[in-house]
Design a protein around this nucleic acid. Structure first.
Lengths: 341, 341
DNA sequence: TTGAAAGCGCTAACAT
DNA sequence: ATGTTAGCGCTTTCAA
């Protein structure tokens, strides 16, 4: 692989001249510039990013730390981060921590050793204290979709507005005419969704009674069982908000098994908009998380930090949006009692 | 950030001594070693990977080039590649080409500039000629899951044995007692799957007649329409092999709409084992692609090349496996005519 | 308009 | 057991 020095020697000029010719700067005759450029192309000269980084103290690399890319929530985000970074000539190192603090530290160490220009940390993929350490020592950092109720001071951050997500779900169901609403929620991780939902009902004069709140653990199965519990009670809901799509699908399955029809007998709304949601029967109405948007904001925030054009650091919130499909509709008998099982 | 030189000066010794102390090699008194290690820890010394790479001509970085990580086929693979690479102290640069040859070239250029130790290229994410160029000039390369019928000479390669996948599907359905089999296939991309299927039927004395072969384009919708076409004919199949899960799900949907029950009236088998497959109703029997395995073999093959312990280069094939769920069973009336619609 | 020289942080061959 | 030196490929003063 030819170096600047090689070219200089072959052309009988100095390194400086070659460097200037290559980057189109500096003062030199058009003739020598042409000659050099020509030769450089011939030998397939390719600048050495390592050497450049060493002097420039800049690598055009960012680290993307996340629990695991195998979790379907992340790939779209990863794609968008890589895309935007690429537009600015940055490349992205993929770091799965599997939520192991030690592995997280190892990755962070490696990234520091490589002089990455910054990092984006998603989910609760690693120990905040470690991130804090590095951030304090000057590593540009963005926390993305960090744990709902935990917000480390000082580190720029962008998340989904989950409170509004809950509110949107409630608004949609209320607008359809539902009055007996239930929620399946993964507490205490997803409290904000519950709060947004509850508050919106309250504004409409409705109380979310404790038996209408069922816990799940974000899995399909937990949604299934939560729905069965709801239907085993005296009073049945006419609509269920599951705080993620997997649980919503589980709830739909339970509903089918009981011989009820969705959305005629029960409306179900989820949250996330995973791929399956659109292809399930019936296609699931859901509160969609704008993953691309989240990724874009996070990446831009990081690049701003890196390039020093960073402004305010108060946590940014990206709004979710309602995606109406076919699992919700007006209730059949708004005031009727629950159908017998 | 402290450097070796800084430490040497502070300790009143030479760089060499510090370097030796840090890497636990060379001859030096236990005393000075301790002293140096102690101090290094105090100031939080972290070796500079760039400088090291520059002298060693080794970056412990590999590039992972793929169409897009947003395609659900890749995340699990990416995770496994990163995991194995990590075990060997390598990090992974994520490069989505979106199947744009120009973008692919740009990525490859950047990777070369960074002196990555090698690359893994998946799918048909970029122009083979470009890969060939770099490979020929010494860049360790592995082609993974490359186009079925295209096999660039010389470049180490690992793929799925799709012929066997088709054979497995046929074996399973034959073993259940099916005799009227149909296939929905994305031709000519997936010819191997068709061939494996057809050949196995032939061994059993069955001919796959042209009307039992329906084209799809890998989407759910195309599977749906292909199934409708099959059912609009005189003779109905008792089992369908769709060469990917999305088409299988589309076929199942069409079957439901016609009032037929799966697997009682029709068996359906897919290929891939995407996440949805397990959660559909009924859970889809499928030929599972061992993504982890594929990723592991590819990564190990690359590391062997990099470390020079590379052996034979004939294309490796990873065998798929049959995953029996609930969309296949013995046919109701093996010899009966098709049920009326 | 062009060149010489120092330095980024590290490794390694060769002294002492 | 420790030190000197040169060099990886590039950028960046400062001179000519």
């Amino acid at each position: 692989m030819a170096t600047i020095y090689d070219i200089a020697r072959a052309m009988g000029v100095s390194q400086t001249t070659v460097a200037n010719a290559l980057k189109g700067k500096g003062n030199l005759s058009a003739a020598t510039r042409e000659r050099i450029l020509q030769y450089a192309k011939e030998v397939g000269y390719r600048p050495n990013a390592l050497a450049r980084s060493l002097t420039q103290r800049k690598t055009f690399t960012i680290g993307f730390i996340l629990p695991t890319i195998a979790n379907p929530f992340y790939p779209e985000i990863a794609e968008e981060i890589e895309r935007i970074a690429g537009q600015h000539n940055y490349q992205v190192l993929l770091c799965n921590t599997h939520c192991d603090a030690k592995l997280g530290r190892l990755h962070l160490d490696r990234l520091e050793s490589r002089w990455v220009d910054g990092i984006i940390v998603m989910g609760i993929s690693m120990d905040v204290a470690d991130i804090q350490d590095h951030f304090t020592q000057g590593l540009p950092t963005v926390l993305c979709d960090w744990q709902e109720n935990e917000s480390p001071q000082g580190i720029p951050q962008v998340s989904i507005d989950f409170y509004q997500a809950g509110a949107l779900a409630a608004h949609h169901l209320l607008a359809l005419g539902h009055r007996r609403l239930a929620i399946i929620v993964d507490e205490p991780l997803q409290t904000l969704r519950l709060e947004g939902f509850r508050a919106t009902l309250q504004e409409a004069g409705l109380i979310l009674s404790p038996e209408m709140i069922q816990r799940g653990d974000s899995t399909l199965e937990s949604g299934y069982h939560a729905a069965r519990r709801l239907f085993s009670q005296e009073v049945h809901p006419t609509a269920i908000f599951a705080t993620n799509d997997w649980m919503a699908i589980g709830a739909m399955r339970a509903t089918h098994e009981l011989g009820l029809h969705i959305p005629r007998d029960l409306s179900v709304i989820g949250l996330d908009d995973i791929v399956v949601a659109a292809h399930y029967q019936p296609p699931l109405t859901t509160i969609a998380i704008p993953k691309q948007r989240l990724a874009r904001v996070a990446t831009e925030l990081l690049l701003q930090q890196i390039e020093g054009t960073h402004e305010a650091a108060h946590p940014l919130l990206v709004p979710p949006s309602l995606l109406i499909r076919q699992s919700t509709s007006t209730p059949l008998h708004t005031d009727a009692l629950s159908p017998e099982l």
